[in-house]
Computed example of a mutant assay.
Amino acid sequence: MRVMVIVKATTDSEADKMPSTELLAAMGQFNEELVKAGIMQAGEGLHPSSRGKRVRFSGAKRTVIDGPFAETKELIAGFWLWKVKSMDEAVEWVRRCPNPMEGDSEIEIRQIFEAEDFGDEFTPELREQEERLRAEIEQQAGKAK
């Protein structure tokens, strides 16, 4: 199963306060462990919401909203994509993670939908399209290296 591991924002991350060298080194070591274990597929930190945008949808109308966004506890400071055997395994890895912030922080784990989760609504044609797009993404990623 694949999961997205979401590092929640804090007032410090939203204020664009950079992590210490020690924290960066500890997170780098943790990422090394994830890669060696075959768990980590991707992971990135995000700039504060003051540099972000939101697009609100209402029928055919689109409204662009500039950051910063209010509820810090609802914002994301970074993420990983992991491939694990179970949610319990993901929890165990998160328990080993260095605290991603200087103070209190929170990490959320969410399972990623797989094709079989969509049932009959995900027709053979849609499955073929999904597979083709994934292959194209992998090919583009290979060229970018």
Rank of each mutant, 00 (worst) to 15 (best):
R2T: 10
V3M: 08
V3Y: 15
V5Y: 11
V5T: 14
I6C: 05
V7Y: 12
A9I: 08
A9Y: 08
T10L: 11
T10R: 08
T10F: 15
T11F: 15
T11E: 15
D12T: 11
D12A: 15
S13Y: 01
E14C: 08
E14H: 06
A15G: 10
D16V: 02
D16P: 02
M18V: 08
M18L: 13
T21R: 01
T21N: 07
T21P: 03
T21E: 14
L23V: 04
A25P: 02
M27W: 00
G28L: 02
F30L: 06
N31A: 15
E33V: 01
V35K: 08
V35T: 14
V35A: 15
V35N: 13
K36I: 03
G38E: 12
G38T: 03
Q41F: 02
A42T: 04
G45H: 06
L46A: 08
H47I: 01
S50Y: 08
R51V: 03
R51N: 06
R51C: 00
G52A: 12
G52P: 04
K53Y: 09
V55E: 06
R56P: 00
R56S: 05
F57Y: 14
S58E: 14
S58H: 12
G59R: 04
G59H: 05
K61T: 15
R62P: 09
I65N: 13
I65D: 15
D66P: 01
G67A: 04
F69I: 05
F69C: 07
T72I: 12
T72H: 11
K73S: 13
K73A: 12
A77I: 02
G78K: 01
K83I: 01
K85G: 15
S86P: 11
S86G: 11
M87C: 04
D88T: 00
D88V: 00
D88E: 15
E89W: 00
A90D: 10
V91F: 04
V91S: 11
V91C: 10
V91K: 05
W93L: 04
V94A: 12
V94G: 12
R95E: 12
R95S: 13
C97F: 09
P98C: 04
E102A: 10
E102G: 05
G103S: 10
D104R: 09
S105C: 08
S105D: 10
E106R: 11
I107S: 11
I107D: 13
I107Q: 09
I107P: 06
E108L: 01
I109C: 13
I109A: 14
R110H: 13
Q111K: 03
I112A: 06
F113D: 11
D117H: 08
F118Q: 04
F118N: 05
G119K: 02
G119Q: 07
E121H: 03
E121L: 02
F122A: 10
T123D: 15
T123V: 03
P124C: 07
P124L: 02
P124V: 02
P124D: 11
R127E: 14
E128D: 13
E128N: 06
Q129Y: 07
Q129R: 07
E130R: 05
E131W: 04
E131F: 06
E131R: 09
R132W: 02
L133N: 14
L133G: 14
L133S: 12
L133I: 07
A135C: 01
A135R: 06
E136F: 05
E136G: 07
I137S: 07
Q139F: 11
A141N: 10
A141M: 10
K143W: 03
A144P: 00
A144V: 00
A144R: 04
K145A: 12
